[in-house]
Design a protein around this nucleic acid. Structure first.
Lengths: 194, 194, 194, 194
DNA sequence: AATGAATGAGTATTCATTCAT
DNA sequence: CATGAATGAATACTCATTCAT
């Protein structure tokens, strides 16, 4: 019987995310999670095999949510430029609206833990990104450079922008985003008419 | 009375870096450091007040080394483009030749620990980068966009490149770097003659 | 879920008392208590928040037991002299029959620990003693001297007596006690008919 | 060479007494003593074999000082009553003027440590007290009760008085002392003319 | 399913003491 | 003589996990 109590499960996730955000992965403990989630720590073991299992599933869950957020409003007929714009815009929205989730991902990403968890590749989630690059290259709109490199010109500046917005708690600044998009597009697009 | 032994101090640093790299900040412990450095854990406390103190000093040390590496071969008379090229090249060299150090920094950066350590701003180390951006903007060569945003178009792709090189353990690929530099320059430079 | 086990709790108390008696408060440690009580030291933390909490509760428990022992066989209609006799007798009995407890209290009393534990005043326990003094003074049977001073003439000689009995392990010597009572009474009572 | 540096020796004693007073025997450590005395902890081992040795010598030193303080102004020809008065007065003075010393003694006295130190009996120091009791009993002025018991009627009330004076930091209250002496004398003296 | 109790192994840190200069 | 360095053993306490109900 796998349904158990979904609210408890959610409480565990929420507590874990909050705590990773507040005290970091290194200070995280099962008992702290239990206390925050108002459960006995034994209860966590009803839902997860052990701490690793919990962290792994949490990571995959958030990563999955981010992956599907990235695909929002992406339609078949879109131009490469529209595609790129949408992906970057989706990324910004996701990070800004799920600040905690994003920062948790960051902690995972830089930790050897992520290797230890021998994660089934999460790459498929982001396959559409790679497909958009390939299409753009085929049509001559994007430079002939390794996809992950091209994507880094779109992804990291968006993160940089998002982080500066964390601090200033301003509303999403449309103009700033458009600037970033313009720069990224300058970086990755083939200048045809020269 | 015995003198403080610089080789012991170095052994502590080395052991700590190795371990952060292998098991991560979250699994790091004073006793593991001691064992790796072939010392009694009590000895670490001769050199550092406590774990926080050790980590802080390690972080500042590495950050400082990175900061000064970035300034290598930077001369007054350089053009903005040369400046940019040199910084990016220095960053790539530093990361490739000090892989471990860089990855340790990354773990620190994404951890709440870094806030807790209430580090005296390390920004000064990277002030020259900001100055180069300002100069470039004043001379009309760089786009009028927030400096940290412009820099993100230079820094992160280099990291991305370096990481792909970690895996393939190829020699530094001059051509790949030049490609990255070209893209970054497309992103940040003002296209004047259009 | 298992229920908290009162025998374990008792084992912790007993072990602690034995150890304070044998090695003293200053050499007492949680691991020694655990070993003596045949528990894991972690288990102690199921029952007590920390060492201070354990010691505080132990102190209050013993002090409480002593307080109520002092009130044994005290009735409303008793004369001041009978009152005094009973209190002194109760004190002697308590100390002799609970040698260890008493000696533990003594160690606490002389330690700065007792101040640190910021104990809610245990004075109420001994309020009846002070009331008996006031009554005796009102009726002119006791000298008009500060209560705590008068009581010291009853309390400490009893302790002295008890301690001499510890060593000689004789049975309670009725005659010796009567002598002590007589001296105490001589000290505190108003000599009316002179 | 035993002279070494007497000021260092004194610094160790002073630091130890202060610390026992402030944090108690249980929290006392060689390194704390060293830090307080502004010495290296290794230096303490030049003057004392180990911690036990230091504590033992400290205890004997203070006890000796108290012993000789008790004998001040005691002359051969004094009456038993004068003798008693002087002893009690000396005790009060000593405790009030050497509050810290006295409280340190108290911590030692109630600790099993004192037994462990297998102290050469300090009783000789207080032999004069016992001689005065014997003389008084021989002359019929003191009750025929065990000396240590009689003495407890003189000693403890004085302590009680001294402690109440600690708190109120009043000057030595002559009148209060006379009251205490009167009570003690009532307790121990033979009422001859009844 | 849920949980408080229980614990062996671990945590950071301090200890008393000795070493080497 | 004096001392900072060095350390094995101890300190109080927390951990991830399992047990018993």
């Amino acid at each position: 019987m796998r349904l158990k109590d979904e609210t408890k499960n959610q409480a565990i996730f929420d507590a874990t995310i909050e705590l990773i955000h507040e005290i970091g992965l290194s200070e995280l403990s099962m008992s702290k999670i239990a206390k925050r989630a108002k459960l006995s720590s034994a209860t966590i073991y009803v839902y997860y095999e052990n701490k690793e299992d919990l962290l792994l599933k949490l990571y995959l869950d958030i990563k999955g949510k981010m992956g599907s957020s990235m695909l929002k409003d992406v339609h078949e007929g879109m131009s490469t430029k529209q595609h790129c714009y949408t992906f970057m815009r989706n990324a910004l929205d996701f990070i800004l609206h799920n600040q905690r989730w994003y920062l948790v991902l960051e902690q995972f990403s830089s930790s050897p833990l992520i290797d230890k968890l021998c994660i089934e590749d999460t790459a498929p989630l982001f396959a559409p990104l790679y497909r958009f690059v390939e299409d753009g290259q085929r049509s001559g709109q994007l430079k002939q450079v390794e996809a992950s490199l091209l994507l880094s010109y779109c992804y990291f500046p968006v993160i940089q922008l998002a982080k500066s917005m964390f601090d200033h708690t301003e509303a999403v600044d449309e103009e700033q985003f458009n600037t970033v998009f313009a720069l990224s597009w300058d970086a990755i697009s083939q200048k045809t008419n020269e």
